[in-house]
Design a protein around this nucleic acid. Structure first.
Lengths: 236, 236
DNA sequence: GAGTGGTCTAGACCACGAC
DNA sequence: TCGTGGTCTAGACCACTCA
């Protein structure tokens, strides 16, 4: 049997997306849902927790669960997503060029970011992303060889994540990201169509697997006009 | 009695921060914790869920809960925080100047962002933040009068959030944020020390209360060199 | 096989909101 | 007072890891 709380979650999510309830309207109470889905109240609460976390509903003590009007649900751009997933969702005219693909001992900064021992090697990939025929993103990925033994230009051109999760069976779990804005380097000017822009948005990520091992470090450099980030945050 | 799962959470968090366990080390199992704290396993799981959500531990099925090495725990800059909380945590030399404080019918964009009816009024506050004697942030806040009946220059100079949560008893619950980079306006050049910078980082937020009502819209404009954002994201 | 976390249950009591 | 969500329990079975 598949997980009950996930099945209920998917059913509720579907109904929410189909506007089965208006925004500001109340969901059925936990007890009602419990009867409706033939599940214990704790199981219902588990599914509602997901909807709360994802910003679809807000629970109000003594009243019920309110459907939230979420402006930003239209821009599904946060969280952990591959460039391919993203460009498909947003229906972008996107191309990827592999600029570099080598297996080597990384320089100190990368070694430090990935907590590597002296002699470990990493796959170093540099890719240029073209959107609407403009080169606007430079992605530099570093994968620990212990987790990713092989990597080809073909895979890098298509989708590394599809390969990692599909063929290698790696399970990505969480990531830390840091966003800053800096001056472009010579390399940025050389590889990207910077037009008049004199700043570049830098997203540095450390990506972890399900067993909490760190396997990837990425530096993604975006031309500022093509950058947008959305976030949903709960207080404490 | 205070909530048991929160008490346990705080105790575990304290121990983690005191490096009671090394990174990569396992926490005691859920059954052991259950005995240690005289709590049911479900209660223990509830406290562990918080630690997982906040990125302190990662659970691994069949093994246990691993302490995560979280580089970014040193930069507590994400989530919902007031400028005062932030500057205190980061120990900044910061000052705030109130540039404008008026109660008025907002312009269309604001009315739209706050889902307001025709005649509702909002407090419109513009504040300039100075860090290390440079004016680098321009904050424009809009508060729905129905929730914030009164606002004074004094409060705006100190901390509006302290006033809202302390004196008014409002409970902030969650926020949607959107980060983009744009060209500075004349106003930015006039009010901020833009030095040579030709871009500005814009953070737009909608802030909601515990009952899911939208009460604040904010546009925060940062000089790019003084901007940094960190994020912790879980996959699906 | 023993131990771990993941799911699920039925029932209890509490705090809060609405009437 | 009644219904809501919030906390907590004791116990069950499953899926997974490791020796």
């Amino acid at each position: 049997m598949q997980k009950k709380y996930l099945a209920i979650y998917q059913d509720l999510l579907k109904r929410i997306k189909e506007h089965h309830w208006r925004e500001q309207e109340m969901l059925p109470s936990e007890n009602e849902l419990s009867t409706m889905y033939d599940a214990s109240r704790e199981t219902i609460r588990k599914t509602l927790d997901i909807l709360v976390r994802e910003g679809y509903i807000q629970k109000v003590r003594g009243k019920g669960s309110v459907i939230i009007n979420r402006h930003m649900h239209h821009f599904p751009v946060s969280g952990i997503q591959s460039f391919k997933e993203l460009s498909q969702k947003l229906n972008l005219d996107a191309k990827t060029y592999v600029h570099q693909l080598v297996l080597k001992k990384p320089r100190d900064e990368i070694q430090d970011q990935l907590n590597l021992s002296k002699d470990e090697r990493v796959w170093s990939v540099a890719r240029i992303r073209e959107i609407d025929d403009e080169k606007v993103i430079l992605d530099k990925d570093y994968f620990v060889k212990a987790y990713v033994p092989e990597l080809t230009v073909d895979v890098c051109e298509n989708s590394i994540y599809e390969y990692l999760e599909g063929s290698l069976g790696l399970e990505i779990s969480f990531a830390e990201k840091e966003i800053t804005v800096e001056e472009p380097t010579d390399e940025d000017y050389r590889l990207l169509d910077m037009e008049g822009f004199t700043n570049i948005v830098i997203i540095k990520s450390r990506v972890y697997l399900k067993d909490a091992s760190l396997f990837q470090y990425t530096v993604s450099r975006h031309r500022p006009d093509k950058f947008k980030f959305v976030d949903f945050a709960r207080r404490s």
